[in-house]
């Protein structure tokens, strides 16, 4: 052993790379689980609302969709759910365990970098997974509906801002939940956090359609999923009216910044004393 060179500090990037390789290995081992949790909810939704309902003569969403058709409104919303869900589950579930009973995070906390690097790697990796999830879900959502989905090409610059912003936001939410929620509270987290986010996230209707219920239209502005749904709508279906794209982008990154600051403090509190 003495013939090997003395250890040196490798710097942030090689360590970040090593941490990402580990997460990639675990993801490859669990790829079936990844696909299932990505696809199941959006697929069931689009199947019931955009395939079954039109066939059985059940109308839903007729008022909100205008000319575009309900399926057109639904597709960006369901991609938004896939992105947000993926980011959250990719971090929050495993991290909650790793910080809790098993203390598995210890070995990575001892890597020769600031502990924030370990947390940021989690967010970057989850954000990448979130984008992959969106890309996997989108084509499938286009195949299922019985009514046409009118996709368009939004502003490419907007796409370059919205997509990473949405992905990073989902990772930041995941990290914030992972450092806050104990493993045994994960089930509760779904009822208290995830379900309200999903149902009140401008997924099934554009935010503008809430004009009819002004208090709700204001209240849901705290929901980060609103900006992900509206942002993807502005990118994928520009014909459907959305809130101002620049408001969307500003809030996506602003929310990410605030949640990340909170989550990094929490991560340090859970790993250092």
């Amino acid at each position: 052993m003495s013939d090997r060179p003395a250890p040196t500090t490798p710097g942030v990037l090689p360590v970040l790379h090593g941490l990402a390789l580990r997460d990639l290995r675990v993801l490859r081992r669990d790829w079936a689980e990844f696909l299932t949790r990505t696809l199941m909810q959006p697929l069931l939704f689009i199947f019931v609302f955009a395939f079954v309902f039109p066939r059985i003569g059940q109308t839903v969403g007729a008022g909100v969709a205008g000319d575009a058709g309900f399926a057109t409104v639904l597709v960006p919303g369901l991609v938004a759910i896939a992105v947000l869900f993926q980011g959250i589950t990719a971090i929050a579930l495993p991290l909650s365990t790793e910080l809790g009973d098993t203390r598995e995070i210890e070995d990575r906390v001892m890597a020769p970098v600031h502990v924030n690097v370990v947390a940021v790697e989690k967010v970057l990796f989850a954000a990448t997974q979130a984008i992959v999830a969106g890309l996997v879900v989108l084509p499938i959502l286009l195949l299922v509906p019985d009514t046409p989905v009118r996709l368009g090409a939004g502003d490419p610059l907007l796409a370059l801002l919205v997509i990473p912003g949405a992905a990073l936001l989902s990772g930041a939410i995941g990290l914030a939940l992972g450092v806050t929620v104990a493993p045994r509270q994960i089930g509760l987290m779904f009822s208290v956090v995830i379900l309200p986010l999903t149902f009140l996230g401008a997924v099934y209707y554009p935010w503008a359609a809430l004009d009819a219920i002004p208090w709700l239209r204001t209240l849901v502005l705290v929901n980060p999923l609103v900006y992900v749904s509206e942002g993807l709508r502005a990118v994928l279906t520009p014909d459907v009216p959305t809130m101002s794209p620049w408001v969307i982008v500003t809030v996506l990154y602003g929310y990410t910044g605030v949640l990340l600051a909170y989550a990094l403090r929490g991560f340090a509190r859970r790993t250092l004393s």
Partner: peptide, 15 residues
Amino acid sequence: LTLWENLYYHCRYFG
């Protein structure tokens, strides 16, 4: 991670 991977990725964390 497997036993081997526990060592391998640890080495990668250290560059």
